[in-house]
């Protein structure tokens, strides 16, 4: 074995020792290439999810039913754009270029949360998306506040605070509908029926089929497995649905006294794989919308750059 490899092994050992001692990794610290790559993949996917996630909710901004709901929805979508911005900044601390990672989204190379490939068909979906989708996102993200990579962990602390407000406003909408007129209750139940299973899929493949989990847990990028988080989500959400009189669309759902949690039915993994591979109801529209935004905005960004250069030149002369 040559010296270079010995050095690398030492470095990797030292790195793992820091992780084991819960010492945060910062941008200028040495890190294995695969750790860096895993983080770039995960954080940019997360950033893309925030940005693509603006679209299904943006879809109802112009049709919000009253002034208050319109303002709250706008504020929520604005928060999501802000989350995207911190997360792209976190990716940049790892040496990745924001525009390159965005191009990966547009070419289909980079993924984003599968949930945003489902359509928002009724106003009730604004409630359900907040309640279930932001609820599931919180389950995923709270442990990330303790992620081993400093900039990601710190971004998550801010993101989680806002997500919990989003989750509450979503639940408030859906609870209002569930206790409203028969039409409103029907809107709420229909929306839950459509979003429940996709929300469970947000936690990713089951542990036995998750190729990244073991390494990510060892690196403390991930703190809990997909199935553990999914179980927590089910256990928190089922009583909420019961409280407002909505029925979870799962005939196999039942309380398991022994594990002190709910057993739930089998997720349709074919559907999950299909959506991941680009065959969800809105995959094409979502990516097209983002690509169009970038292409249509090209002249604007070019103008801003040209103007800044002109000013710089004037200053210099």
């Amino acid at each position: 074995m040559d010296m270079k490899n010995i050095n690398l092994e030492d470095k990797e050992r030292e790195f793992q020792a820091k992780i084991d001692a819960d010492i945060r990794i910062e941008p200028n610290d040495w890190m294995p290439d695969s750790y860096r790559k895993t983080l770039i993949r995960q954080i940019s996917q997360h950033a893309h999810s925030e940005i693509v996630g603006m679209l299904p909710e943006g879809n109802w901004v112009t049709r919000a039913p009253n002034l208050r709901r319109k303002a709250v929805l706008l504020a929520k979508v604005q928060d999501e754009a802000g989350h995207g911005l911190y997360l792209y900044s976190a990716v940049e601390t790892l040496g990745a270029d924001r525009e390159d990672t965005i191009d990966d989204l547009h070419s289909g190379k980079a993924k984003y949360s599968s949930i945003f490939n489902y359509p928002t068909l009724t106003w009730a979906d604004m409630g359900t998306v907040g309640w279930l989708v932001d609820g599931a996102a919180i389950m995923n993200q709270v442990p990330l506040c303790r992620c081993s990579y400093g900039p990601y962990a710190r971004a998550m602390v801010r993101v989680c605070k806002e997500e919990s407000f989003h989750q509450r406003q979503g639940f408030e909408i859906i609870a209002g509908l569930a206790n409203g007129t028969p039409e409103q209750k029907e809107l709420a139940q229909d929306s839950l029926n459509r979003w429940w299973w996709p929300a469970l899929m947000m936690f990713g493949p089951s542990d036995e089929n998750s190729k990244h989990t073991a390494q990510s847990i060892k690196w403390k990028i991930k703190r809990e497995t997909n199935d553990e988080l999914r179980q927590k989500f089910v256990d928190v959400t089922v009583p909420q649905a019961e409280m407002i009189g909505l029925v979870i669309p799962d005939k196999d759902l039942k309380w398991n006294e022994e594990k002190q949690g709910y057993d739930y039915g089998e997720i349709n993994w074919d559907e999950f794989m299909n959506v991941i591979q680009g065959n969800g109801p809105c995959n094409k529209q979502r990516v097209d919308a983002r690509r169009n935004a970038k292409e249509n905005g090209m002249w604007v960004r070019e103008a801003a750059t040209a103007y800044a250069e002109k000013r710089q030149a004037k200053k210099a002369s």
Partner: peptide, 15 residues
């Protein structure tokens, strides 16, 4: 203006 939501020329402008 709200019709721009999610379609701005750059993320900072979306915000």
């Amino acid at each position: 203006i709200s019709e721009w939501c999610g379609h701005g020329p750059i993320l900072e402008e979306d915000i």
